[in-house]
Write a protein that binds this DNA or RNA. Structure first.
Lengths: 223, 223
DNA sequence: GCGCATAATACTGTATCCATAATTATAGAA
DNA sequence: TTCTATAATTATGGATACAGTATTATGCGC
C-alpha cells in the first residue's frame, strides 16, 4: 500500500475499527477476532492489538484479560448518565462561544444555521444531520477550550455506540430546528446565559426524543 | 515473578509508569527510552509499548511517530482550561450528591470532613491532603454518574502532570478548609444549588491560589 | 444417560527478530 | 573554521514465533 500519511499503522487501524463500530458493522457485544482481523487487514497482530488498547481506553471496546476483546455494550443507564452531562458541557460551550465569538465567527455560524433551515424545508435529512453536527462542532470550537472539546468528543464517541438517533423520529427534526433557532437567536443577541440554557435544553430534548423512540422503536435507523 | 492478579502485564506497567509520572520521577518533556525501561522492568518491549499507547490516550504521554514517546508538558493554558471545567463538573457532582445521598452517605461524608478539620488543627498537611481527596471522591461517587466520574478522573490525571499543589501555599489550607465547611453545610442543609455553587467556587479558588503560587513560586512542592 | 474429568485445540499474552527511518558524527570542501 | 553531505549507529515500528491459559469436546465412570 502507498503510505502517504506519517501516522502510525495502529492509528489507522484504530480509526478503521472506530468507523466499523460506529456503523454497527461490529455491533456491541461482538467478539473481536484478532487473528482474523489482522489477516483481513493484511497486517500482524501487533499493531492491531495496540489499536485495541487505544479503543479500550476510549471506551469503545472492553479488554477482558485472557478472554479477548468485545465491542462495548452501552446501557440505557449510560445514555441517561451521558446526555445530562453533554447538556451541561455543550451548554457551557454555547456560553463561552457567545463570550468569545468575533463578528466573523457569528457570520460563519449563521451560515451553517441557514443550511440547517434550508435542509429542513427541503426535507433533506442527511444534509440536516451534517449541518447539525457542523453547528455543534463550530460552537465547541468557538468556546476555545481544548479540554472541554476533548471531553465532549470522547463522550460523543461513546454515544455513537448506540444506533439510536433522535432525528429519525417523526417530528423531531422540526423540533430540533426550533431549538436551534432559539440557540442561534441567543447567540445573535449576545446573550451567553440564554444560549447556555437553550443549548442545554436542546440536548435534553434530544434525550427525551430518544426515550420516546425506545418505547415505540419504529424508525430506529443507523445514521 | 509470582503473578497473582489476573491483570495483564501492560496494565501493571501502565500503572507503574503513571505513578512515576505523577511523582515527577519522569518529569514532563522526558523522553521515554523503551529499551532501557523494558530492561529495567525485566520485560520485553511489546507490553511496554502497549502500556504507552494507553498512557497516550490518557494524555499523560505524547507519541510522536518515529520520534518516540515523551511525557506530556502541560501548559498554563491547559491549567486555565481544565480548572473551570473541573469546577463545572465537580459542582454538578455536589448538586447530584445532595439530591441522591442517603442518611448514611451524609454521615460518612461528615466523618471525612471531621478528619479534615482535625488534620487542619493539628497541622497534618499530608493527612489533610488525603482527607481532601477522599472528600471529593466520595461526593463524586454519590453523584452516581459513572461517566461524570470517569471524565473527572481523566482530567484529574492530566492535572497531576503539574507539580503545582495549591495546598502547599501559606494560608491556602485554612482557606480550603473554610470552603469545605461551606460545602458540607450546604450538603447537611440538603441545598443542592448551594452545594453546587460552593464546590464550584472551591475549585476556582484552588486555581487562583495556584496562580498566586506561579507568581511567587516559593513553596512549590510535589505532593 | 448424565456428569465430571482429562485432553486437545485455539486464542491471548509475551518475547525475539528484522526493517526502516531518524539522528548524529565524521569527513571533505568552500 | 564552518557548513554540508554522507555514512553509521540507534531507536521505533511491524512481523513472526513461542508459551501459557481458557474453553470445548470427548471419553470414561457412576
Amino acid at each position: 500500500m502507498n503510505r502517504i500519511a506519517p501516522t502510525a499503522l495502529y492509528q489507522e487501524v484504530a480509526e478503521r475499527l472506530r468507523q466499523r463500530i460506529f456503523a454497527h458493522e461490529l455491533p456491541p457485544g461482538t467478539w473481536i477476532d484478532e487473528q482474523k482481523l489482522a489477516e483481513q487487514y493484511g497486517i500482524s497482530r501487533t499493531p492491531l492489538r495496540e489499536a485495541l488498547k487505544v479503543l479500550a481506553s476510549e471506551g469503545l471496546v472492553e479488554l477482558k484479560p485472557r478472554r479477548g476483546c468485545y465491542v462495548t455494550e452501552i446501557s440505557a443507564q449510560d445514555i441517561d448518565d451521558i446526555y445530562p452531562l453533554m447538556a451541561l458541557l455543550e451548554g457551557r460551550c454555547a456560553s463561552e462561544a457567545v463570550k468569545r465569538a468575533k463578528r466573523a465567527d457569528i457570520d460563519d455560524l449563521k451560515a451553517v444555521h441557514e443550511v440547517l433551515e434550508r435542509s429542513a424545508v427541503e426535507g433533506k435529512i442527511e444534509a440536516f444531520f451534517e449541518a447539525n453536527q457542523e453547528f455543534h462542532r463550530k460552537i465547541q470550537e468557538l468556546a476555545g477550550n481544548r479540554w472541554l472539546l476533548t471531553v465532549i468528543q470522547d463522550l460523543r464517541k461513546v454515544l455513537k455506540l448506540s444506533r439510536m438517533h433522535s432525528l429519525s423520529i417523526e417530528g423531531r427534526l422540526q423540533q430540533s430546528l426550533d431549538e436551534h433557532r432559539l440557540i442561534m437567536a441567543a447567540i445573535l443577541a449576545g446573550n451567553a446565559e440564554q444560549a447556555e440554557q437553550a443549548m442545554h435544553d436542546h440536548l435534553l430534548s434530544g434525550r427525551e426524543a430518544l426515550a420516546r423512540m425506545q418505547d415505540a422503536p419504529s424508525a430506529a435507523k443507523a445514521a
